[in-house]
Design a protein around this nucleic acid. Structure first.
Lengths: 356, 356
DNA sequence: AGTTAGCACTCTAACTGTTAAAGTGCTAAA
DNA sequence: TTTAGCACTTTAACAGTTAGAGTGCTAACT
């Protein structure tokens, strides 16, 4: 499609524009990138690249600026090698190396680290509860009228909620609840706590509907609750030259404030890969002046959360993608190790059972 | 200090400025507020008010703008009656009327409602953990290597955390932990889980330091963790005319992003009252162009969280203070009722005991 | 053929000057 | 003590000018 010289010039234009945020002139390209052609030749090439839709101009006599098609080509074809330094790798290792007890904490640490290294605004959400498999449901009595429900899923996600009653709950009631819910729901996906299930449990249990009803309600609430969004480095973006426009700043703050929007975007990405949405490629109208890069992290097919970067279309895609790739790999390794440890645990138990 | 006419004119200037965000001229005052003096007389009064420091000018021939001293006088002396409509009262009642199981949820609802009614940005934090009294500590085994610690305090705050082990934990160990921690810590403030306590527990318990150590660490982490801040309506502020200045917008976003700063401000307010900080009255340099209004809500002397509004110095103090007062009263009533119910519960039990 | 020097042309950004409108402060009279 | 009247100040908006940056095109060169 594009010959080598055009590719090289296109890459130079985009690299330069990402660096300087100023329209790139033919003269500057020749000087800074040691091109062995004159500015006039470069001008002809630039005109052709513009004709093909890879570049734009801000006005008739201005330098060139990448179009969205240009950025897309750049992301797909032109950035090849890893753009991550040894210091950055070490920093990531030190941050992700700290022991955490809950997956969400690891996600938060990764989100913060990603923002620190790239200097962009990052967002993340935890795993989608609905798809998780219930490993255990535990009812715990706090005082005499407060019941805590704890649900543990197979990927180690822990969700808990509290129900307050106007009458006392006894330990034997709690025992019954534990048995009933576990026998019925262990191994099922969380989304299974639905209407038929509710009716079944209500028919099964011997005491008052007033005890069960709020439990089901409350469990459904935490399952359906949109994952809380975690945001880091909103202020960093504002230092970028594109945010000299008040309009854009307001749009940006509005986007970050509208949590459902960010949750949708994070959820829409494909698993097992890094997703790049440039400007108009975003479904939502509000996002058309921004680019978003996301990745889901998971072990096997278990969704463990999604992390994303949002910034201007003039984003340092090469750095962002490299750092994300590394963080993604590192998180996977950490979780794999943990998973293997659990496997070991199971195997040891099996061995014990066999030797008995 | 100020005669009645000056007070009246000062109030008119501030009311008008809060409405229009434009410097107020002598002519506009006479016309809009039906003053029975000519603009020339008003001009003389304005000049005197300026001389006394209650008003400022943006340039020699401009209208008047309230100074911080002016706002302070306005807040302390000039706003008297409640500025809250029946619709607003009903809306608050409907929002705060929904049943919640955890105090933090009530605080969040109140924060959101406050933002919706005032159209300002609101922030809140939960109760300070350190001062709470431990009512119960419960250890719950999830699977065989995951231990959950749940702490319930006297004001109904529930904190929980998870510890993962590399070896199995038995139910009897959990039992021992429950007995030991409860016998030692029940009725003590959360802050009491300190070094001497740690050593005592370690000396008392019969098994490995590897089990206890992470528990103490993890408990300390959740106690010392700065309360998560809850933010609502950041975008609403940006519609205000003061945020035509890019500089101010960036400052504002930076402030909201710097969570420690907001936490400090919320914590610094006095209990049992509404705190108003106008511009330079704020300790922090970054806040000098903004005003902050906060209140703590509590039952008795139990701190249950703090809610605040942040906006430009040209804030509708009268509306903000009225709405806050009402929400504060309403929250207190709700919690009082709940408290009374618990009292009832205890009394009923006492009665039972007595009748036995 | 492809490349390039040269030049006319375009557009922006910064600045200068001008003008109308808004508002004050002051003086002198009521 | 109040107020009408007026000179003075400042802003904001608009128009005009200019220097500089950069392009596109033509014609010459390899």
């Amino acid at each position: 499609m594009l010959d080598d010289r055009k590719k090289k010039i296109l890459q130079a234009v985009i690299d330069e524009y990402i660096n300087t945020a100023e329209p790139v002139s033919s003269g500057a390209l020749v000087k800074k990138y040691n091109l062995k052609y004159s500015s006039a030749t470069v001008r002809n090439e630039l005109a052709e690249l513009e004709g093909k839709g890879y570049l734009d101009k801000t006005h008739t006599s201005s330098g060139r600026v990448p179009s969205e098609k240009g950025y897309r080509f750049y992301v797909d074809e032109l950035i090849k090698d890893d753009n991550i330094s040894l210091e950055e790798i070490k920093y990531i290792q030190s941050k992700l190396g700290t022991k955490v007890n809950e997956i969400e904490d690891l996600t938060k640490i990764a989100t913060t680290t990603l923002s620190e290294i790239t200097h962009y605004t990052t967002v993340s959400i935890g795993p989608k509860a609905q798809t998780q498999i219930i490993q255990e449901i535990k009812f715990v009595l706090l005082g005499s009228r407060m019941l805590m429900v704890v649900i543990v899923t197979d990927s180690g996600l822990v969700k808990e909620t509290i129900i307050k009653y106007n009458e006392d709950i006894t330990e034997s009631q709690v025992e019954t609840l534990n048995n009933l819910f576990n026998s019925k729901l262990k191994g099922k996906p969380l989304s299974k706590i639905d209407k038929p299930m509710e009716e079944y449990i209500l028919s099964e249990i011997k005491y008052s509907i007033d005890v069960i009803k709020p439990i089901i309600e409350q469990i459904n609430k935490i399952i359906e609750a949109e994952e809380n969004i975690y945001l880091e480095g909103a202020n960093k973006s504002l230092e970028l030259p594109e945010f000299k426009s008040l309009e854009l700043v307001k749009n940006f703050v509005n986007i970050l404030d509208e949590k459902d929007l960010m949750i949708d975007v994070l959820n829409s990405g494909l698993a097992k890969d890094i997703n790049v949405y440039i400007g108009d490629e975003n479904e939502n109208e509000q996002l058309k002046d921004f680019s978003i890069v996301t990745f889901k992290h998971s072990v096997g097919d278990k969704d463990l959360g999604t992390i994303g970067i949002i910034g201007p279309k003039r984003m340092n895609y090469s750095k962002v993608i490299s750092v994300m790739k590394y963080i993604s790999k590192k998180m996977n390794m950490d979780l794999k190790m943990q998973d293997d440890a659990e496997q070991d645990e199971n195997r040891t138990e099996d061995d014990k059972n066999n030797s008995n």
